[in-house]
Write a protein that binds this DNA or RNA. Structure first.
Length: 841
DNA sequence: AGCACGCCGACT
DNA sequence: GTCGGCGTGCTC
């Protein structure tokens, strides 16, 4: 009998493949791309088969326990994309594969621990309480929580390296462990439905029955009428919950009808589907000249069945969405599928809604607020080919669509496409280009304010540039005006953060019944709390940042780690009692508006008011139908909203992001201000924008004012070139963090030394990174301490003209990382590599 | 990640 | 010698 071996990739195990023997009965089932259940150490876990061999030199192999899929669960283009990601982003392929499948579909054994029956705990505790604190903590936790997993036990006790204590306790017979194989934890959701039984599907029979029942059971009649009106002609079953709600009847009434044989109650599988509470009616839309030209170009690409990429640069309100929709329509007609990426679903309810109205096609919506079950359902519907359109956030790039024809990346400049907090640290926009290449599909990157990198690529011919220079409904672009706050202050006219000019404009718009949007890109009340006597500023215990005062909760809070404390009654340094709440957050603006314009209905939209599911929709629909006059918020209010009644946009302070220590600070500011300005005047009503600033001379503002994207781009490009920043280089950010400040610094210094050695003028490396890479740092990060961890950064700039493919950067990093891990790595210091980082804070 | 193993200091 | 804590390194 021929032997069969498989190479398996497991999450967390870097990129090492492990080899297993395939038992004869699984020979047919083992294929590349399917998952296998395999033993690892003393547990069972799920891995991906990435190779099949008929021989191996490795001895004492374990056997594959089971094969979990009949066919590969990824289409080929996605499979290849995940492998590319692992290489490009320095992630383990296993981590990428895990990130690209819904949680809970990979079976794994879980160990659960409990106290053994009949053990004298008191005796044990008295014996070990002083000499063995860890054991004591474990026993007490088990006493309190019963049977729990090791990870929970670690959380509850706060004990690190718990395993030796556990094995001792087990050996001594105090505890026992139980291994359970958790099969897929997510299950299809079942809901009860109600329908008429056979005889009562006849209307005459039913009417007779209704009049018979009328006198003694009014509730039952209400149910029957509701069900009848809902299922006219079709006899379609109705959800039990809905039926009860609409007929205001109870379950017992429905049951009574079932017992009489009039209705059936039965479970049906339902998919947990995203429904936006937002509504809008479908207008008859005819593409204008520019839209049509752009669409025609895109369709040339889709018809060629070859990879092609486009940058759709359309001013705010130019109707990019309609171009996407028409392109998708054609792609579907050709029997292919489409993927739409958006920065954040809850911020773009109108986009999703417009897709639903325009395309009569099942679509899967994937966003960050979905439950595990919802994610699984959406993923499965796509994998089973039940829907051909996926619209979703960053991780939707992993949607298992087969026969992919088009990927749209809306607002391609948005930083949310980059995952920075966990491996794989990928940018979904860039992965979209790679995936489309593998799939021979078309990519459309859309934005009113393209990223400098993308516009550069478009001008250099890497992408085809498509322009929508006019607003779709002939609306004019808004008039933008700057208010110099420094001058206002000097003239003694400024009290608080709202200038006289802005106040007057708000009043005049409100008297006309029009809507106002106010932007202040800081949440909370004040951004710092300072003692007026000695200058002491309240800072976070865990992070090197100031605390924000929240007037709603009356506490100081850290926006990075969530640390909360009460504001001090006296200064802890000098015992002074005059605490000054400086810096302006949305809550302070809210207060000022209430004082300045009494009686005005304002709603605040920021992270603090939108934590609950559906709160976005609520706030927005209220504002849309005139229930509120002013929508005030952080950058949330700048994105994707399209309300015709908004005629005035006020920017409380344009300066919040301008001076951040990040090479993209100007770009971010330009984008935010242009985007928020675009919210004003979207129909016949002309819009105006007031931007308040202490830096009226800043070049970003000048181009915002002139509505001159290209001007901004040209200006910014020069400084990018001077400083070797993207698009002239590719960046790698290497971060070191840990609780021991000295150790973190030492690791960073060591790593930087290795880098400089390898990339310096005397380097002998084969593909020399000499002169192609520049090393910056090591230096403490801008936020030098975060969640108790000290942080140091190294930045590598790989010059594109000398290293176009990034090959020499990769080599430099791989070699250096190897030496570092072998010789210098300190387990108390965590090192991460972030390729193409978005923020460098 | 999850787990075992082995080293080392404190205590018997 | 033995026990308990902690760091290191392997998992086919």
């Amino acid at each position: 009998v021929k032997e069969v071996y498989v190479n398996i990739i497991l999450p967390h195990l870097s990129n090492r493949e492990l080899t297993y023997i395939v038992p004869t009965d699984l020979h047919g089932a083992a294929k590349v791309g399917v998952r296998a259940l395999v033993p690892l150490g003393k547990r069972l876990t799920t891995g991906f088969i990435v190779g099949i061999n008929s021989r191996t030199d490795i001895k004492d192999l374990k056997e594959v326990r089971d094969v979990l899929d009949r066919e590969p669960i990824f289409p080929d283009d996605l499979w290849k994309s995940t492998r590319w990601m692992a290489g490009y982003y320095f992630a383990s392929w296993g981590d990428v594969l895990k990130a690209s499948t819904p949680q809970g579909i990979h079976p794994e054994t879980k160990r659960r621990i409990s106290l053994k029956e009949g053990v004298n705990i008191e005796e044990l505790l008295s014996k070990s309480s002083t000499s063995a604190p860890k054991r004591t903590a474990v026993i007490k936790a088990l006493q309190q929580y019963g049977k729990i997993s090791v990870s929970q036990l670690v959380k509850k006790t706060g004990v690190k390296s718990i395993y030796s204590s556990l094995s001792d306790l087990e050996r001594l017979g105090y505890i026992e462990t139980e291994e359970t194989l958790a099969r897929s934890r997510v299950k299809p959701r079942l809901e009860n439905f109600v329908e008429f039984t056979g005889p009562f599907q006849d209307k005459e029979v039913l009417k007779k029955k209704i009049s018979e029942t009328e006198k003694n059971a009014p509730k039952q009649v209400a149910i029957l009428i509701t069900l009848l009106s809902r299922s006219t002609g079709t006899n379609e079953p109705m959800s039990l919950v809905k039926l009860m709600r609409h007929s205001k009847a109870s379950l017992s009434s429905v049951r009574a009808l079932r017992d009489k044989g009039i209705v059936n109650i039965f479970p049906l599988e339902v998919t947990r589907d995203y429904k936006s509470g937002f509504s809008e009616t479908l207008a008859d839309i005819v593409l204008n000249r520019h839209q049509q030209t752009a669409l025609d170009e895109i369709l040339k690409g889709t018809k060629s069945n070859r990879f092609q990429s486009y940058l759709l640069h359309g001013v705010t309100g130019s109707g990019k969405t309609q171009v996407y929709i028409e392109a998708i329509r054609e792609v579907l007609k050709a029997g292919k599928t489409a993927l739409v990426l958006v920065p954040e679903i809850s911020l773009t309810p109108q986009l999703v809604h417009r897709f639903r109205l325009n395309l009569e096609e099942e679509m899967a919506v994937m966003h960050s607020r979905m439950s595990v079950g919802e994610r699984y359902d959406a993923w499965r519907r796509v994998a089973d080919g039940k829907c051909r359109i996926v619209i979703g956030v960053r991780s939707a790039i992993f949607a298992p669509l087969k026969n992919l024809g088009l990927i749209v990346v809306d607002e391609e400049h948005e930083a949310t496409y980059k995952q920075y907090d966990a491996s794989p640290r990928y940018n979904a926009r860039d992965v979209a280009l790679v995936r489309a290449r593998f799939a021979n599909a078309v990519v459309v990157l859309g934005s009113a304010t393209p990223s400098v990198e993308s516009y550069f690529n478009a001008l250099s011919g890497k992408y085809k540039l498509l322009q929508l220079p006019e607003r779709a409904d002939n609306a004019k672009l808004p008039k933008i005006e700057i208010v110099d706050l420094a001058q206002e202050r000097k003239a003694g006219k400024l009290k608080g953060s709202i200038s006289v000019q802005l106040k007057e404009r708000i009043e005049s718009r409100l008297t006309k019944g029009e809507g106002v949007i106010l932007l202040q890109n800081r949440r909370g009340f004040s951004t710092y709390a300072e003692c007026l006597d000695c200058g002491y500023v309240e800072t976070c215990e865990n992070c090197n940042v100031t605390l924000t005062y929240h007037v709603t909760k009356k506490h100081l809070r850290c926006h990075y780690c969530g640390f909360v404390k009460q504001p001090p009654t006296a200064c802890p340094e000098c015992l002074g009692v005059s605490l000054y709440y400086g810096g302006v957050g949305t809550q302070k603006v809210e207060d000022e508006v209430a004082t300045l314009l009494p009686g005005v209905k304002l709603v605040r939209m920021d992270l603090d008011t939108t934590t609950r599911k559906g709160s976005h929709d609520k706030i927005l629909s209220q504002f849309a139908d005139g229930g509120t006059d002013i929508l005030l918020g952080t950058q949330m209010v700048a994105k994707g909203l399209d309300f015709s009644r908004v005629t005035l946009v006020g920017v409380i302070s344009a300066d919040t992001g301008m001076l951040l220590p990040d090479f993209r600070a100007s770009e971010r500011t330009f984008q935010l201000l242009t985007q928020v300005s675009g919210r004003a005047g979207r129909s016949e009503l002309e819009g105006e924008v007031i931007i308040q600033t202490y830096l009226p001379e800043h070049f970003s503002l000048k181009y915002v004012l002139a509505n001159d994207y290209v001007g901004f781009y040209n200006h910014e490009l020069i400084s990018r070139e001077e400083l070797d920043y993207p698009p002239f280089s590719r960046l790698a950010l290497i971060e070191f963090k840990g609780e021991n400040e000295k150790a973190v610094e030492q690791c960073a210094v060591k790593f930087a030394d290795l880098l400089k050695e390898a990339s310096g003028p005397r380097s002998k490396s084969a593909v020399s990174s000499r002169l192609t890479c520049k090393v910056l740092g090591p230096a403490p990060a801008a936020i030098s301490k975060l969640k108790r961890n000290y942080r140091w950064h190294i930045v590598i700039k790989s010059i594109r003209s000398k290293d176009p493919s990034g090959k020499s950067l990769r080599e430099l990093l791989l070699n250096t990382e190897g030496i570092y891990r072998r010789k210098f790595a300190d387990s108390n210091v965590k090192m991460t590599i972030d390729i193409d980082p978005q923020g460098m804070m």
